[in-house]
């Protein structure tokens, strides 16, 4: 190769490796801060004080969804297998909110250690299939989020 081109190639490679390394270090140090949500297990481990806002993510424990008498406040338990947190929310739940389904709630713990949510978002997983296939899988005993009918009170 022409020595001038060789120099350009070398210069570019040095710049690219430098930028790559710098960003890798930045991302590594930001790892914790870039978490969009924390799981119930994290909450237990990190001892987040009441009143400090954060996002809580996990699965809605099957059978835990209850509606208060006013018909607005919903209570459910979010779990990640390592911890459970009770959540209270009085707003409109997304369509995909089901028992067994992933959710992300924004809010803070209150003094009674109940998570008071101001917003609840449904988290989707990477599985896509027709309803018949999902039913067939469920019959064979594969764990799947419950169908909308069985979580009837979950949707507004």
């Amino acid at each position: 190769m022409h020595p001038k081109r060789k120099k350009r190639l070398l210069g570019l490679v040095v710049i690219l490796v430098g930028v790559g390394l710098a960003s890798a270090i930045t991302i590594w140090s930001l790892r914790q801060n870039m978490l969009f949500f924390v799981t119930p297990g994290d909450v237990a481990a990190e001892n987040i004080p009441p009143g400090r806002p954060f996002r809580l993510g996990g699965l809605v424990q099957p059978g835990s969804v209850t509606r208060a008498e006013d018909g607005l406040t919903v209570r459910f338990t979010v779990t990640d297998g390592e911890g459970d947190i009770d959540v209270a929310y009085d707003g409109i739940l997304p369509d995909l909110f089901r028992e067994g389904q992933g959710v992300i709630a924004r809010g803070a713990m209150d003094q009674a250690m109940v998570f008071q949510a101001t917003e609840v978002l449904a988290k989707h997983d990477e599985n896509y299939m027709p309803p018949e296939v999902a039913e067939a899988l469920a019959e064979k005993g594969h764990p799947l989020p419950s169908r909308p009918q069985s979580a009837g009170d979950g949707t507004p």
């Binding site: 991302i27 978490l35 949500f37 924390v38 993510g57 992300i104 988290k123 896509y128 027709p130």
Partner: peptide
Amino acid sequence: VWWNTLHQPGSVGVDGSSIHPSM
């Protein structure tokens, strides 16, 4: 993969896909 995100992980990879063939 690296962070907790609202966005779900990828469905199609070199080792297969979690999308039903009809889709």
